[in-house]
């Protein structure tokens, strides 16, 4: 049987998990299901927005099937929703209970500090994975069902990229919470980092001479490889996972060393 702390974490997070899952499913479903009807509107949007704006929003073209999927699901709103869910859920592993005082009784569980933080993160990491995988799983059904002409393997690669991106920022959020125990720090640091790296990827792609900037951005490893057209890029995905793993490890070490609830 799973550790009591893992089950407790899931039970306390179930509303948030359900909310984010339903929200992302609705977002994915509604946008893609109306693919045929959106075609005319997409043309209008494409014509109305200047090229620079389209590039900044990560929209190559909205007319091709891959361009449409990229523009609607994977460029901005999809990652935004997934990361918001991931960051707020991860803020609950340590920072929130530490601030509202519930930590005292949780931490009194007969497990080591490391096991405590590990079990909390394992539970939340599972929840984050579920949320981040919603677009992937839904698209695997919707794309063939309504005949969007994109290889399923490529859809899977982009969907997996979204999961890897979520893991990356979950690691960062966990580190911020484990190190400081402050919820606002988790939200501010991780949120600011997400926005900054998104901009870095966008600017790096647009401005000559700033190309190198993209290599610093998780968003580049997620979508800069153009998985919808070119399929799987294991090295890029592993880079995201590695960042998540390293930040998680750092978080565990710092949590094990500091005073709790000061």
């Amino acid at each position: 049987m799973l550790p009591a702390l893992v089950r407790k974490t899931w039970r306390d997070d179930r509303r948030a998990l359900l909310g984010w899952t339903v929200g992302l499913a609705a977002f994915t479903g509604i946008y893609t299901s109306f693919y045929p009807q959106f075609q005319g509107a997409a043309q209008l949007k494409q014509d109305a927005l200047p090229k620079g704006m389209l590039d900044f929003l990560g929209i190559a073209d909205m007319l091709s099937p891959t361009g449409y999927l990229q523009a609607t699901i994977f460029s901005l709103i999809g990652p935004l929703l997934v990361l918001m869910g991931a960051i707020t859920l991860t803020a609950r592993t340590i920072a929130r209970p530490e601030e509202d005082g519930g930590m005292e009784l949780l931490l009194a569980s007969p497990v080591s500090r490391l096991a405590f933080a590990g079990q909390r993160l394992a539970a939340t990491g599972t929840a984050v994975t579920v949320i981040a995988a919603v677009p992937w799983l839904l698209l695997m059904v919707i794309v063939p069902a309504i005949g969007i002409d994109v290889a399923l393997s490529n859809v899977a690669a982009a969907g997996a990229g979204l999961v890897a991106l979520a893991w990356c920022f979950t690691g960062v959020a966990f580190l911020a919470g484990a190190a400081t125990g402050r919820r606002t720090t988790v939200l501010a640091v991780t949120g600011a980092l997400a926005v900054a790296t998104y901009m870095a990827n966008a600017i790096g792609g647009m401005v000559d001479g700033w190309h190198w900037l993209r290599w610093l951005s998780p968003f580049h490893y997620f979508i800069g490889t153009d998985p919808l057209n070119t399929g799987w890029h294991p090295a890029a995905l592993l880079t995201l996972v590695a960042v998540g793993a390293v930040t998680t490890l750092a978080g565990l070490i710092l949590f094990d060393r500091r005073d709790i609830g000061v």
Binding site: G101, G102, P110
Partner: peptide
């Protein structure tokens, strides 16, 4: 020895706050 020790300790915090929205029984 935190794990082994806390199994043998009953702790009541001074500032009591309970995690989650469970009923007392849960």
């Amino acid at each position: 020895d935190k794990a082994a020790l806390h199994r043998q300790i009953g702790y009541l915090p001074g500032e009591l706050a309970f995690p989650g929205r469970d009923t007392a029984a849960d």
